[in-house]
């Protein structure tokens, strides 16, 4: 019990410097980025132009003429209280913007992650069951092909075929659940292929291990070996890496949201870039970073509770 607690405490504490580091990175890239935030705040519509004095005054009010560390500390202090500043171009607070955007992205990412896990494991296992039959061979080639397809290409083809030619599914929309189907598909097909191939390879490796040979020698069917012995042995590590795919999916959602015009986090990032809206972009990086780190933490702890013998990469 003591060792268990020890591990958990250590793992939880290990997150703190990482989060701290992420905050430093987030702040620094905005700090290093070219352009004057004061000028940008005053100058968002390009019709009227601020004078030099106005810019100077704005610099003082925004506190951007202070040194790096003092700016960082005042920023992080506010951030800890949930105040991430205000967007330059639409003046909303970054937090309220996040609150608006996060649900949209989650409604994409969570089903996509589920699909990735379930679809990947099921298809991968299917591949390992009888690898020699034709449909299975086609499937494993499909994995390779999907793995090599850029996401935007996939999304465009899906829109073109399903939306415009067949008119099966809506291609834009935040109004009802159907609108999320195509984007979720476009988002998860690649990751399903990755997980599927991984499961397939791991299973193939596992089956070559001596204990499976012995089981086979005892007359246990191949199918049974896969389900009863090989799969349980590889399933935990697979779940462990699902957390990684959450990051992948969050990243992919930038492209998918852009193509399907969904007002989620990804399109917020693009909007922030388009307007050089640093606070918004900072909010984005900070949020995705923290979520990703915390999700890995939860997954690790869960797996540890399931099987304390599991060995993690050092943290």
């Amino acid at each position: 019990m003591n060792m268990k607690m020890n591990f958990i405490v250590k793992r939880v504490l290990s997150v703190i410097p990482v989060l701290f580091g992420i905050s430093i990175i987030t702040f620094s890239i905005a700090f290093l980025a070219p352009g004057d935030p004061a000028e940008m705040t005053l100058d968002q519509n390009g019709i009227y132009f601020p004078t030099q004095e106005q810019i100077e005054q704005m610099r003082v009010t925004m506190g951007v003429n202070a040194s790096w560390h003092s700016q960082y500390f005042s920023w992080i202090k506010k951030a800890l209280y949930g105040d991430l500043g205000h967007s330059y171009h639409n003046k909303n607070s970054v937090l309220s913007e996040l609150r608006m955007r996060v649900p949209v992205t989650l409604q994409l990412a969570v089903p996509a992650l589920l699909l990735t896990g379930l679809g990947g494991i099921i298809l991968g296992t299917l591949c390992a069951l009888d690898p020699k039959t034709l449909p299975i061979r086609i499937l494993s080639h499909l994995f390779d092909i999907f793995l090599a397809t850029p996401r935007f290409l996939l999304a465009l083809l899906l829109i073109f075929v399903m939306g415009e030619i067949l008119r099966l599914l809506p291609t834009s929309g935040v109004t009802d659940y159907k609108g999320y189907l195509l984007p979720t598909m476009a988002l998860s097909i690649t990751t399903i292929a990755v997980v599927g191939r991984l499961v397939k390879n791991k299973l193939a490796e596992e089956i070559r291990k001596p204990y499976c040979f012995i089981a086979l020698a005892h007359g246990i069917q191949h199918r049974q070996i896969v389900f009863l012995y090989a799969l349980p042995n590889i399933i935990l590590p697979i779940i462990a890496i699902l957390g990684n795919f959450f990051g992948e999916i969050l990243g992919g959602s930038i492209i998918i949201e852009n193509i399907f015009a969904l007002p989620g986090l990804g399109s917020m990032a693009i909007e922030a870039i388009r307007f050089r809206d640093y606070p918004l972009l900072q909010g984005y990086v900070l949020f995705t970073g923290c979520t990703y780190v915390l999700i890995s933490l939860v997954l690790d702890l869960l797996l540890y509770l399931l099987n304390p013998k599991i060995r993690f990469e050092e943290y």
Binding site: S14, P17, V18, L19, G21, I22, I25, I29, A30, L32, A33, P34, F246, G247, E248, L250, G251, G252, I254, I255, A269, I270, A272, I273, Y278, L281, Y284, V285, T288, G289, Y292, V293, Y315
Partner: peptide, 21 residues
Amino acid sequence: LSNIFQGIPGICFMVAIAGFF
């Protein structure tokens, strides 16, 4: 350091850097 850098999902980080600079 590598934990920190791995903490931010790849594409998000890339978009942010390309966007900022």
